[in-house]
Design a protein around this nucleic acid. Sequence first.
DNA 1: CCCTGAAGGTTGCGCGCGCAACTATTTGTG
DNA 2: CACAAATAGTTGCGCGCGCAACCTTCAGGG
Lengths: 154, 154
Amino acid sequence: MNGRPPAEQTLELSAFVPFRLNRLATGVSQYLAAIYQARFGLDIPQWRVMATVGEVACTAQYIAASTRMHKTRVSRAIVELEARDLIERASNERDRRERQVRLTKAGRRLYTELVPLALERERALLACLAPQQLHGFLEGLDVLERFLGLDAQP
Amino acid sequence: MNGRPPAEQTLELSAFVPFRLNRLATGVSQYLAAIYQARFGLDIPQWRVMATVGEVACTAQYIAASTRMHKTRVSRAIVELEARDLIERASNERDRRERQVRLTKAGRRLYTELVPLALERERALLACLAPQQLHGFLEGLDVLERFLGLDAQP
DNA sequence: CCCTGAAGGTTGCGCGCGCAACTATTTGTG
DNA sequence: CACAAATAGTTGCGCGCGCAACCTTCAGGG
């Protein structure tokens, strides 16, 4: 034993992976915002609902599980999109609690215009990675998602 | 040319990297929350301020730039931490607009207790990746951060 | 020197979010 | 069949966030 105080561990935030992931996610969101926000007047919840419903008509419940958004956030996004006539809801006579959400004609038009832009924007972002780097990054992403149970399908 | 309608591109959200990053960042935050939130009563802004000030005494401006948080978010976190006697502020006589923020004795104790737990939690998370996978993932993270200009130092 | 503009920080305000509570409907069970 | 529990979805509420405006102090020209 000696008189020195115990060496104190320090945490450099800019090297702390959880912080870096938060910062990256925010940065990427801003990188994309110009497309769905400025150009189409959608916020993130609305855009996620559009993207989900564009694949297949489904219930609000399914959207919430699939996007991992809180059901109230989904509910409000749906109300707003319906007011803009981008989506519509059909009652299910078999279970009158739920309603099928699907794109309207105008919603389909917006979706068809928006999706290629979003995919192109994603491509432009990932183009900063060499093919080998991209592969490694996505592999890590896969494993982390599985570890945290984020990949579980609804 | 033929009579078929143009094949419509669809966007599966669960394969869209920007969405996956947001979801992962949220998941990791929750994974860490138990430590700084439940156990030490800190929210994310407070925890980031503590982590920054624990490395070196600095101004609110520096904290904001370093953590990429809005200055009002930093300001409010500082007020709360000061009320809990975890940090203190010393006026700078050379420039009386700014104040140096540093840990109090109690703040230093909390920091010394918290940091090893946070680092251990990070280690536990990243342990789901094989060494080669971890390396690849971090390399991709580096490149993306540089591409988006998130690495710029204040 | 003043006076204009900039910089460090704080505060008023509106908005979006999640929690909890609620309605309406369906399912399960004795 | 009735009643309890579960499920789909909506809404009231409080809180945290960012924007813009503000206060204070400093720097730099005329």
